[in-house]
Design a binder for these strands. Structure first.
Lengths: 218, 218, 218, 218
DNA sequence: CAATAAACGAGACGGTACGTCGAGTCTTATC
DNA sequence: GATAAGACTCGACGTACCGTCTCGTTTATTG
């Protein structure tokens, strides 16, 4: 992901990286993905569309997956708001519908990244790092809500997040069914109102950290 | 998926299809997928490993994705039990842990199929058909349970299934975290105990078929 | 040079090599060499012009040099006569002017091969083998003539051939001056009449095999 | 070949050309050529080895061929003596063995230049100019000798030189057989003793300038 | 039992993308 | 203005995989 080769000891010398190249590549990659035959984008096509030499692309990104990943990151950073109204139901709904909207709009981009990550270990690693960052935001939201008593105390946050993001990726990659604001509301409902029953009956037997593995990924 | 070219009018003439070919291809494809470099399996490699000519593969399967799909179907058919004890909690838990175990064991096979489906429309279509069949089984289980009162009446079955399968595919394709029997139990708990609150208050405003789209896929 | 992969034990199986491919490649390579920008011929260009895939070229020839070499061999085989009138002066003159004419006509082809041989060891090896075969013909002619007394007994044949072929390649590669029939006659004169003086005076002190190395190449 | 960009009207401004650069480039180019993989030397490698920027190389030399050419010229100037004892046999032998020794020692350098000249017209032009200068020296030697009667009057000097240099380049580029002092002596013998028979008979019908083309190259 | 028809192994072939490399140009900052 | 460092374009390289296409052999069915 455009590693900085300057080891900090030497100030920097020689011609600087042209930022227009980076922008053009990422933008054109996203554009091509959105077009017809989006899933069959090639490095050559990106290079041609961006008016950039293939060599230059390979200088800054190790593989096609890395380009897609950086395009996704770029896309996500400017699109998804992180709300904080102090009410979990509202915040969560906003966060999810914002996420869904952004992902839906760049659907082919995300699908292409996932396809690449399924073949290229490095791309998968980068994708997981990106996902972990997004998941961190959601976790913070949920923890706040739980601390305010808006969530059952015994809730398994990781499992809940797995279900939320699982639903999203499932619809995006497999079912290809839409990710709407209505779905975000429904999901919010399910998490807050029904993730764990407050009602009497058999107490929730699941401990706080009941996941089978401690992974942080999402 | 191994189309039968006989047009039914003429009985049959010439040499018969060798069933060993089909078996060898599907078995070797699965084997190779399971090995190192599993995701990079080629048709040539499958042909070589199965002692079969590439031409023969393409005679019976239209594309690489079709081979993977049939291998997955084969795998699923012999692996996953469909229980019916009359108690939803038990049946669901059994069904899910069986599914998770089978999927986990052939992880690379499923991942390769998903990767192919992301590029090849036909493979995606076939995969969705397979998934719809599996989903149908789960739906039958859930409806039975609901009719026996083991599930809240207002539950949105499609959304619930989206969350279940979403979790599964998410862990399989993206997070690469394990799918254990414990997870199956936890999920069963969440669906039965907490999918919707039984507590009084505003009745669940969500209609029976509240999904944003009417698709049957899963 | 289009090695035959059949190890003779197995008769042969599978589709046969398409001879039209070989012909088209060699012919088009020669054509392109003769055109403008001849020295900058690429494998891609040859493939395109021959209506053949690059892959196929690499299947049969290990490198560009090998293609050029085979084109040269093909060219030489059908072009240069090997006379045998029993009179050295006539035979030698005919042989040389035939050689010169053929080489001159396919000048760019020979130059490209030489250029390739200067970079690629394998091409150089093949080229030397081809040259050795041509040199063998010339040697036979000269030995016949010497046995008939048409050449001085003490003549160093290898040195003489080095000078003849040296002149040819020098004009072809370096000086780029023409190789004419007149030059062939002049050279014949020099070899026969003046290679060694028959006249009295200091006897030729050069032994029969005076070359510094025994190489057979030319 | 290291063109001087100063337009002569303005005395000079700014930093002067660093002569160490020129030396380092030419020396390192020759060194690299002599090493393993000599024929595959790149401008980058030369720049790196010389501790010089690529840009600087291209400021002073128009192309890779020009660098090689100047390296060859440099090499030749300091290596090859031009004797003048007043005896052709001695002078010629000395000249040739000196030439052969120098060329042989920097074999890869000469071969690389020839390879470059086969692709780059400008390099070929420069190379021919260099060769013409060398040939001029040899011509002067031969003419002196002829005027002193040490050569047959009817000798075709250009053809003789073509044969001499042809032999040299042939062994250098094609046959890759050594160029020894013994060969120089043998060649001297052939030129002086036997270039044309002194014997009676039909007088040499070849006019003084019998070459098929008037070129001066060698 | 021959003629016919299909299945099959071997492998050649066209197409298309990949990732790498070298030549030569241009830019930035320093000397 | 000369220089080092290095970003950049252009274009060729050789490799890999896909899916299609012969070619000759083997196996079954039909007349």
């Amino acid at each position: 992901m455009a590693t900085d080769p300057a080891p900090a000891s030497r100030p920097h010398t020689g011609r600087r990286r042209n930022p227009a190249v980076r922008e053009a590549v990422l933008r054109r990659a996203a554009d091509l993905l959105a077009g017809p035959d989006g899933m069959a984008v090639t490095i050559d096509a990106i290079a041609r569309a961006a008016g950039v030499s293939k060599h230059t692309i390979y200088r800054w990104w190790p593989s096609k997956g890395a380009v897609l990943l950086e395009a996704v990151v770029e896309h996500a950073q400017q699109e998804v708001p992180v709300p904080d109204t102090g009410v979990l139901a509202a915040d969560l709904s906003t966060f999810l519908s914002g996420t869904f909207l952004a992902v839906e709009r760049a659907g082919d981009l995300f699908r292409a990244l996932a396809a690449e990550a399924l073949r290229d270990t490095a791309a998968a690693e980068g994708m997981r790092a990106f996902i972990a960052a997004r998941r961190e935001r959601l976790r913070a939201l949920l923890i706040q809500g739980r601390d305010r008593g808006e969530l059952p105390a015994g809730i398994d946050l990781e499992l809940t997040m797995d279900q939320i993001y699982g639903l999203m990726w499932y619809r995006l990659l497999i079912a290809r069914t839409p990710l709407t604001a209505g779905l975000a509301a429904q999901l919010t409902q399910a998490v807050i109102g029904g993730a764990r029953p407050h009602a009497p009956g058999p107490p929730a037997p699941i401990p706080a950290t009941s996941r089978d593995d401690p992974g942080d990924v999402l």
